[in-house]
Amino acid sequence: MKLIKDKEFEGERPLYGSHDIRIENVTVHAGESALKECSNVEACGCRFEGKYPFWHVDGFRISNCHFTEGARAALWYSKGLEMNDCTVEAPKMFRDMDGLKITGVTLPNAAETLWHCRNIELKDVKADNADYIMMHCENVRIDNLVLNGNYSFQYTKNVEIHNSVLNTKDAFWETDNVTVYDSVIKGEYLGWHSRNLRLVNCHISGTQPLCYAENLIMENCTMGEDADLAFEYSSVHATIKGNVTSVKNPLTGRIAATGYGEIILDEYKKAPGDCEIVTV
């Protein structure tokens, strides 16, 4: 593997088409596509300032690197990424990628990040300003994510999340097969139009959660006082510790909670309209 160390590059495609290289303490200044069409690349202690540095890359490991805001859309159309202990200020990271393992990464400007990606592992990640993160992704496993941003995880499939804090409205819309364990989810309109959403030992807050959901399962969860008008037109099986502020027109299934502030079953109830609502 060729070593490139203590260098600076700029302009268009300075390392285009490189294979089997390791770059250390390298700065890539303004320009485009520094490492396009490369394979088997290691980057350690580097700084990326120009646009699109890693496109169409097959197999790369990035550690202790800094992507400035100017390095927008830095990693697209690539596969086989391991990223550790990096700071990513650039928005629109990770598009149309397969095989990502991201650990100990901070993304302070994570808008439109992780779109159309597959086979993703995230651990110990913090993402701020993360509107529309993780759209149309598949086969995702997450542990200890702190997320601040709206419209997250829309249209995702086969997602498993553990030990996370998600401050996000309109999360998990139109999703398939998502399970969240031991997490806090704060935000309005959670999980609308989802299919097979399962929440285990989670705390839910925000108005009108979990409506229009198909085969929603909640196990040993709690709900905040602002989580009102829940479960409208959903098929649901839920066990909830504590009170639910209000339940509105669930479609079918069973809801068991300590108590209810209000149960609304009005003229807009839809068939079958046979959801069992019990106090335990």
Rank of each mutant, 00 (worst) to 15 (best):
T103Q: 05
L145F: 06
M135T: 06
V146D: 10
D176P: 00
C46G: 10
E89L: 00
E12P: 01
E138R: 14
P108F: 01
S78L: 11
N167S: 14
T258G: 15
E138M: 08
T27E: 11
L107V: 04
N243L: 06
K92G: 00
M93F: 05
L147H: 11
E232D: 12
E37Y: 07
N148A: 15
M97P: 00
N249P: 01
N139P: 00
I263C: 02
A213S: 15
T113C: 01
V236F: 15
T168S: 15
M93I: 02
M134Y: 15
A271L: 02
R118S: 10
H162R: 14
Q154H: 09
K5S: 15
L3M: 13
C202I: 09
F172I: 10
K169M: 10
F231T: 02
I240R: 08
G206R: 13
H193K: 11
M134W: 15
A230C: 11
N144E: 04
T245F: 12
A90W: 00
V28E: 00
D170E: 11
Y151A: 13
I263V: 12
P209V: 11
L216Q: 13
H19A: 04
E262M: 11
K269Y: 00
L251G: 03
K241W: 04
H136P: 00
P272K: 06
A257Y: 13
I4Y: 06
M83Y: 08
E10H: 15
T103P: 00
N167C: 10
D6V: 10
Y189T: 08
E112H: 06
M1S: 09
A230L: 04
T106N: 05
V178C: 09
L75H: 05
L197D: 13
L15A: 05
A227I: 07
K51V: 02
G45L: 09
G104Y: 03
I102Q: 05
C38M: 04
R198P: 01
A171Q: 08
N129T: 01
H66S: 03
L199M: 15
L197H: 14
